[in-house]
Simulated assay, not measured.
Amino acid sequence: MDLELTRRRVIVTGAGTGIGRVTAEAFAAEGGHVAALDIDETALGELSTGTGSIVPVTADLSTEDGCREAAAAAIDDLGGVDVLVNNVGAGAVRTFDELTDADWQRTMDLNFMSYVRMSRSCLPQLRRSEGTSIINNASDLGRQPEAVPMDYSASKAAVLAVTKGLARAEGPKIRVNAVAPGPIWTPFWTKPGGFADTMAEFHNMPPEQAVEHEMSLRQLPMGRLGTPEEVAKVIVFLASPAAGFVTGSVWGVDGGSVRGLL
């Protein structure tokens, strides 16, 4: 199926690893021209371009200046922007009592305010193009919070609220949607100090056993963690003309973790 994304100009944040990396490569494989933003310059240098192109942009998106400068550099490299994928994020398993004000601020700056700041910086260019869209990477925890990590859940719930609001504010010119992944096996989980390690501390188990225990508690119908490719395919679809009547939506790629109707 031709998704008609050839030569589309795409910005992907947090593109060095995990879902962001696979998403950037998926757009390039469709013939898109991608600006890949990440704080890890080495990881950006390892991206595969496919039939399109990928321009690496090293940036710290946890700050206002970092977002503004990265967006300007990406737009300059691409000659504009047609699709913005807000994906960058981080999290750790900490109880409510363990979370300090500084922890909350760091989480919100990267997981939520980077989305606000990148969208603000890109909207003037998006409004000048046709068939433009924003896709925000949220989480099943934004719709169905668990006891931990509460700061992460709150940041993702805020992402969903902005997704809905921007869809109304920018329609019909710009479509704005979100994906809400469940547990996805990426470096977000596997890196030192990532979800698996902090979950191991929380459950007092080895990392792999702690992850399996957590999945059993969540009672996933699919019985496994997802893959970055499974999320990236939905993001690319939402950016394409095939999703031309889709806006203000939240697409769960969660293995059935969310049990509510909404």
Rank of each mutant, 00 (worst) to 15 (best):
D40K: 07
G20Q: 10
G45N: 07
D140I: 00
S129P: 03
L44Q: 06
A102G: 06
R128I: 09
G45H: 10
D38C: 10
E64A: 14
L44I: 11
A24C: 07
L44N: 06
G20I: 11
L126Y: 05
R94E: 00
N111Y: 05
V116Q: 14
R120E: 12
F96L: 15
D140P: 02
M118D: 05
G80L: 06
L126W: 04
D82G: 13
V93E: 04
F112L: 15
A72S: 13
V83K: 07
S119P: 02
G80Y: 13
S114A: 12
T95V: 01
M118S: 07
G91Y: 04
A147P: 09
C67A: 08
T95R: 01
N86G: 07
A24E: 14
D82K: 05
L123Q: 01
A35L: 11
L78S: 05
T58Q: 14
T58K: 14
S121T: 00
L78P: 02
A138Y: 11
V22N: 04
D82Y: 14
L141M: 15
A28F: 00
A36T: 10
E130H: 09
E98P: 02
G80F: 08
G66T: 01
E146V: 02
L123P: 01
D82I: 08
M118V: 06
T107I: 12
A92C: 07
V88F: 02
L110T: 09
T23Y: 08
L78M: 07
D101Y: 13
R128Q: 15
R120P: 04
G131P: 07
A59N: 03
D151P: 05
A70M: 08
F27T: 07
C67W: 09
D77C: 11
D40V: 12
V55H: 15
G89T: 08
L99V: 11
L37M: 10
I39P: 03
V148I: 12
T23N: 12
H33L: 15
N136P: 02
A24P: 12
I75W: 09
P124I: 04
D60Q: 13
I54N: 06
R21K: 14
A71Y: 01
A72C: 03
A70L: 03
V93L: 02
E98M: 03
E130Y: 04
P56Q: 01
G52Q: 09
T132L: 08
V116T: 12
Q144D: 08
E98V: 00
N136D: 05
R120K: 11
C122S: 13
